[in-house]
């Protein structure tokens, strides 16, 4: 594709807009975005506001949510729940991932059970969590844990198993004792896997916290979305959904950056 449009002459200002290159690409993207907004506007003018509000109304809905402090309150509650859930699943996921990946008999004994739970749609744990932990914050943290723990655990465990072949044989050849290998080889080598696991875990923690707001106590961002949906306040609902998208995206991009920063060698492999 790109081979077909070779650069032939010095680009003029017009050619910069129509010829190949990043400028043209961005022109197309921006034009497409405007077309999308326009299509939304046109579609919204012809249906009830409860079904599809105009972009302007969504914007006003967002302003209203912020003014009343609904969004701030909801995200505040959500942040606390996610932070607690992530802390627990990060600690358990990484520690168990390393130990179970490193000691094969433990892996054999425990992995079939964990594999089984991994195959279960975690939403099915909601009644069990309600039975054990009620519907409040503890229950939500448990639900978040059930979503994010497995992502972190399996990523780290598989990481340990992968690096085993590559680096552990080196350590063996140079007579390094096992605990030193764990400390000086395994722990640094799994950094990229831990980072990937944390990123996946956080995305799943967001899924868990939203579902927690739907099916456990109705608070946080999930509760807000649920309440706005049941009241048919569609403009504000869409505004709230945009914040979820934004947070999800920011979390992902931020952790991607951090991943490349902490383990730059992974990039070239």
């Amino acid at each position: 594709m790109t081979l077909a449009h070779g650069k032939t002459a010095a680009p003029t200002r017009l050619a910069a807009l129509t010829g190949p290159g990043p400028v043209r690409d961005w022109t197309i993207r921006v034009a497409a975005f405007c077309a999308l907004l326009l299509a939304w506007q046109l579609a919204a003018q012809n249906v009830s506001v409860a079904v599809l509000p105009t972009p302007r109304r969504v914007w006003e809905g967002m302003a209203g949510l912020l003014e009343r402090g609904d969004l701030q309150l909801a995200w505040g509650q959500t942040a606390v729940q996610v932070a607690a859930g992530m802390l627990l699943s990060a600690v358990f996921g990484v520690v168990l991932g390393v130990l179970i990946g490193w000691f094969k008999p433990v892996d054999d004994a425990i992995s079939p059970l964990l594999n089984a739970v991994f195959l279960m749609p975690r939403i099915a744990l909601v009644p069990l969590i309600a039975l054990w932990f009620g519907l409040q914050d503890t229950a939500k943290i448990a639900l978040i844990l059930s979503f994010s723990f497995f992502e972190i655990f399996f990523t780290v465990r598989n990481g340990v198993k992968t690096i085993e072949n590559e680096f552990v044989e080196v350590a063996k050849a140079y007579c390094i004792p096992q605990w030193t290998v764990l400390r000086k080889v395994v722990l640094p080598a799994i950094t990229p896997y831990v980072m990937t696991g944390l990123r996946l875990g956080l995305v799943y923690a967001l899924v868990g916290v939203v579902l927690g707001g739907f099916f456990l106590e109705s608070n946080g961002i999930g509760g807000l979305i649920y309440a706005l949906g049941s009241d048919f306040r569609t403009a504000e609902l869409i505004a709230a959904l945009f914040t979820v998208m934004l947070v999800g995206l920011a979390v992902n991009l931020g952790l991607h950056r951090l991943e490349n920063l902490l383990a730059p060698w992974k990039v070239t492999r």
Binding site: E166, A189, A263, W265, K266
Partner: peptide, 9 residues
């Protein structure tokens, strides 16, 4: 080792 096996970090 054939594939070097240096510690990348």
């Amino acid at each position: 080792f054939q594939d070097f096996r240096l510690l990348p970090w």
